[in-house]
């Protein structure tokens, strides 16, 4: 029972289409696990199931020994799972600092009366939220700091928006971070940096990380374990080398003929 996260026989049907099919898989605390697979394999749907955006058709999801099925997304976040999105989804009109501060929402509790009367406890909490948000933003160096704190998120460059999205997830004080293609659309230099950063997130901040990624260099660099998905099910699991050479994985990416060609070459 040392597993931080565990799911068994998880399935999701959309009408006739089975997006996730009897997917079982677990993560131990402190691990970095990569989830790979061709487009439409069900990776993002899996994320949506875990974060509660879709209810699963069957199966179970456990986190820190608690059942996540039936919980609302915000309750799941409160338990300690935070995510980023494949297409960056920030709050574009809010400032960068405010974006990061929103992440702290589930770790604070002042309500309407507190906001209006502003007693000492409210001020302290607001100060703590602000400092925490700044601390997360500072993780990315000076890019999101300084004058940018008060700029709207819409003014950021693409790469910085990705960074801010990670910072926002970090400030929920989650145990498990789900990163959906953090390197998508980044240039090679930024990609290397992101891979580096994912390692740092675990080593310095103690996050357990599940990352969907298409860029194999990132996968190779960061993962302790790689899980490959296709047609909603798990087709391979193991170290990068194991998975990269797995027949099913190659088939999933290149098709049957791809394997034959490779065999012929051999």
């Amino acid at each position: 029972m040392n597993k931080l996260f565990e799911c068994k026989n998880l399935s999701k049907d959309f009408g006739g289409l089975t997006a996730v099919n009897k997917f079982s898989f677990d993560i131990e605390e402190g691990e970095i696990v990569s989830l790979i697979g061709p487009n439409g394999a069900g990776k993002t749907t899996f994320f949506n199931l875990v974060t509660g955006l879709y209810p699963p058709s069957s199966g179970m999801i456990m986190f820190k020994g608690e059942d996540l099925i039936g919980l609302s997304p915000y309750e799941i976040t409160q338990l300690g799972i935070a995510r980023t999105f494949q297409a960056v989804r920030l709050f574009p009109d809010m400032t960068i600092l405010e974006n990061a501060m929103v992440g702290q929402h589930c770790r604070s509790k002042s309500g309407v009366l507190g906001a209006i009367l502003r007693p000492r406890s409210y001020q302290k909490e607001e100060e703590r939220i602000r400092n925490n948000a700044k601390e997360q933003l500072a993780f990315f160096g000076s890019r999101l700091m300084g004058f940018r704190l008060d700029q709207p998120a819409a003014s950021l460059s693409y790469a910085n928006r990705r960074r801010l999205e990670i910072a926002r997830a970090m400030s929920t004080e989650a145990k498990l971070l789900l990163l959906d293609e953090p390197a998508a659309g980044m240039n090679p230099k930024e990609t290397i940096e992101i891979a580096h950063l994912i390692g740092k997130l675990r080593d310095e901040r103690g996050f357990t990380i599940l990352v969907i990624e298409h860029d194999m260099r990132v996968v190779k660099d960061v993962s302790d374990r790689v899980v490959a998905m296709d047609y909603g099910g798990k087709i391979a699991e193991g170290t990068y080398e194991q998975v990269a050479t797995d027949e099913h994985v190659i088939e999933a990416y290149l098709g049957r003929t791809g394997i034959e060609e490779q065999d012929n070459a051999n």
């Binding site: 976040t77 935070a82 929920t172």
Partner: peptide, 18 residues
């Protein structure tokens, strides 16, 4: 902030713990 987040993207606001 919660309201503003909600008005900009309800789904994301929900996954951010609101």
């Amino acid at each position: 902030r919660a309201w503003m987040a909600m008005s900009e993207d309800e789904q994301v606001a929900e996954t951010m713990g609101i």
